Amino acid sequence: MTSDVDRMLPSTVPVMLIGPDGRPTSAGPLPPAEDLLRGYASMVTARRFNEQASALVRQGRLAVYPSSFGQEACQVAAAQVLTDVDWLFPTYRDTAAVAVRGVDPVEALVLLKGDWHSGYDPYERRVAPLTTPLATQLPHAVGVAHAARLRGEPTVVLALCGDGATSEGDFHEALNFAAVFRAPVVFLVQNNRYAISVPLSRQTAAPSLAHKGVGYGVPGEQVDGNDLAALLDVLSGAVARARSGGGPQLVEAHTYRMQAHTNADDATRYRSDDEVARWVARDPLTRLETYLRAQGVLDDGRAAGIAADAEEVARRTRDGINQDVEPDPEDLFRHVYSRPTPQLVEQLAMVRDELARDEAAGTPDRQEAAR
């Protein structure tokens, strides 16, 4: 007889529907071909987006970029399983997921350029701001899910995090609160094996990160994070259970970041070329492409069209980031509260006065320079 605890435990091996060689496994039926083709197109765009963003760093247009190169299947699946009423809570590495969700790719990157705030309106696409501190977005995600449940709304929140985030207190607090109050939230842990340079073995002794859920009463599952078909299957099931009142769900996706943590990181200091090569052979993009071509769903003409669309996204991203924006000091005060506090009003007046004094003092110099 299966106990409640047994039902919470993940599979002994990660769920995989399409193997690294592009052939279907016998683990179960695959998602519809149109869903996989849509996901493939998004993955091609996400890969090109990662390449373009990394190039913008080298050109000095972005200060830093945490690439999700190699994790595109996780990024795409996270956005694709959600409906318009749902929320996505990303980390700093999830700009591709944010773009797939419908946020303008330029707006998804301006935070990394140094522009004001998060660069986009979270309410427009129901995408929370990109979060740099590890796991701090998880309690926020649970709060949004809990509020939606109290209002009787059908909203599900999908919260992304990495393996390093599972070592943070916010992760444990979020799972505990979500379980107690049965918040409709899905936690997707993208386990890419490293928290910058700290390997997974130095973070946990659990059989898997998905096993951590049972201690809080949260069902867990682990999935091959480089298999889009398996991700869509597992995540759509988790979202459906959360939406129907099943409470929070924990999904661990086994994946790998093929590039360094950021452009400021030297990954060769803590991982070998052989290790990277083994994961390159499990590339989520080539895996799905191989399957789709074998099924006759994808041919050269359609692949060329998808690549052209991805190139257009890269061009628009490049052109948008390359535009210089004149900062407005008053933005420091406009977006703090919907109704400014007396202190902010006073501080704004002080800044306006100081800017006016600087303008008056600088006028003769500018006139002289103009002559």
Rank of each mutant, 00 (worst) to 15 (best):
V156T: 06
I196D: 11
L188D: 07
Q190I: 11
T204V: 09
A178R: 02
S201W: 13
H140I: 14
V186K: 06
F187P: 03
A159H: 12
L188Q: 08
L209C: 01
V157Q: 01
T166G: 08
N192F: 12
Q190D: 08
F187D: 05
A183N: 05
Q190M: 13
A174P: 09
R202A: 15
P139C: 06
L188N: 08
A205F: 08
T155F: 00
G169T: 12
R151H: 12
A147G: 07
A195C: 04
R182N: 12
A183D: 05
N192E: 11
L188M: 05
P154E: 14
P154K: 12
C161H: 10
P207W: 03
H140L: 14
T136G: 08
V189Q: 14
L175R: 10
V185C: 09
A148T: 00
A135E: 12
L158A: 04
D163E: 15
P133N: 11
R149L: 15
G164Q: 04
L188C: 06
L209E: 01
P154T: 13
H140V: 14
V214I: 09
V142E: 04
L160E: 11
L134C: 10
G162F: 10
N192G: 12
F171R: 14
Q203P: 04
A145E: 02
A145C: 02
T166Y: 09
R202M: 14
L160V: 12
H211W: 08
V180P: 00
G143M: 05
V185S: 07
T204G: 03
Q137C: 04
A206Q: 03
V214H: 02
G213E: 04
A178S: 04
S167C: 05
L209M: 03
R193E: 13
V156S: 01
V214K: 01
N192P: 09
K212D: 06
A179R: 03
S167N: 11
A159W: 11
F177E: 06
H211V: 02
E153Y: 04
A159Y: 09
V180Y: 01
R149I: 10
F177C: 10
F181N: 09
L209S: 01
V156C: 04
F181Q: 07
T155W: 00
A206P: 02
N176I: 08
E168L: 04
P133L: 08
F181A: 08
H146I: 00
A174V: 10
R193V: 13
P184F: 06
A141S: 06
R182G: 06
L200A: 15
D163A: 12
L134A: 15
A148D: 01
N192L: 11
R151V: 04
G164C: 03
P184I: 10
N191H: 07
S201R: 15
S208V: 06
G164A: 07
G169I: 13
S208F: 05
R202V: 05
C161S: 15
L158H: 03
S208L: 02
G162Y: 07
H172V: 10
G213Y: 03
A159P: 12
R193F: 13
I196Q: 14
P154R: 13
G164V: 03
L175W: 06
T136F: 06
V198P: 02
G169D: 09
E173H: 13
F181Y: 14
P133F: 09
A159K: 09
N192H: 09
H172Q: 11
A147F: 01
D163S: 11
R149C: 11
L209T: 00
Q190V: 11
F171T: 13
A195W: 02
A179T: 03
V180I: 10
T166F: 09
